[in-house]
């Protein structure tokens, strides 16, 4: 059960992180805002059934599933595991964080989600399992593969400025 104060505190506390996550997933600020708004609307509608300690993961769960649903509708022909491109090795003389951000955009949606939840939000494998509905070993595999891709994408870190 969540009261108005707890709900409003959740807006202050989590809307930025949620928006950041949604923005990275969708790549579009309007779509990201819609996802955040939908998540909070759903939270408010279900406030009687949501534990206030689980608000954050509830919000991320809603945004994740909503994004995946939208992605499936918009990309009926491609799988959620499809890589957008082959790793690039020609990233010399660029900032490593900038390259990493580009690399993350090229990850398949599920890998992207789990690694963002892991690195940006600091979720454990168990928590990511609950948010995404994947099992723990799947979460681990997706994260490891994502890191492998990122590592290949950045090439030799010594040549990065």
């Amino acid at each position: 059960m969540i009261n108005v104060d707890q709900y409003n505190q959740a807006v202050d506390k989590y809307s930025d992180g949620l928006y950041r996550f949604a923005l990275k997933m969708t790549g579009d600020s309007d779509d990201a805002k819609d996802l955040v708004q939908d998540a909070f609307e759903k939270l408010w509608k279900n406030r009687k059934n949501v534990n206030h300690e689980k608000i954050k993961s509830y919000l991320f769960t809603v945004v994740y599933h909503k994004f995946i649903d939208n992605y499936r509708k918009d990309n009926r022909m491609s799988s959620l595991d499809d890589m957008h491109t082959e790793p690039s090795y020609t990233n010399a003389y660029s900032d490593v964080m900038e390259i990493l951000q580009r690399a993350v955009d090229k990850l398949p949606p599920v890998q992207k989600s789990v690694i963002l939840l892991r690195d940006w939000e600091g979720y454990s494998y168990k928590e990511i399992e609950q948010i995404t509905g994947l099992n723990e070993s799947q979460v681990k595999v997706y994260i490891f593969r994502a890191r492998k891709f990122l590592r290949q994408y950045i090439g030799d870190p010594k040549v990065l400025i």
């Binding site: 950041r20 963002l116 690195d119």
Partner: peptide, 8 residues
């Protein structure tokens, strides 16, 4: 990955 600062 480092989380960028984003404001809703």
């Amino acid at each position: 990955l480092e989380a960028p600062t984003v404001f809703y």
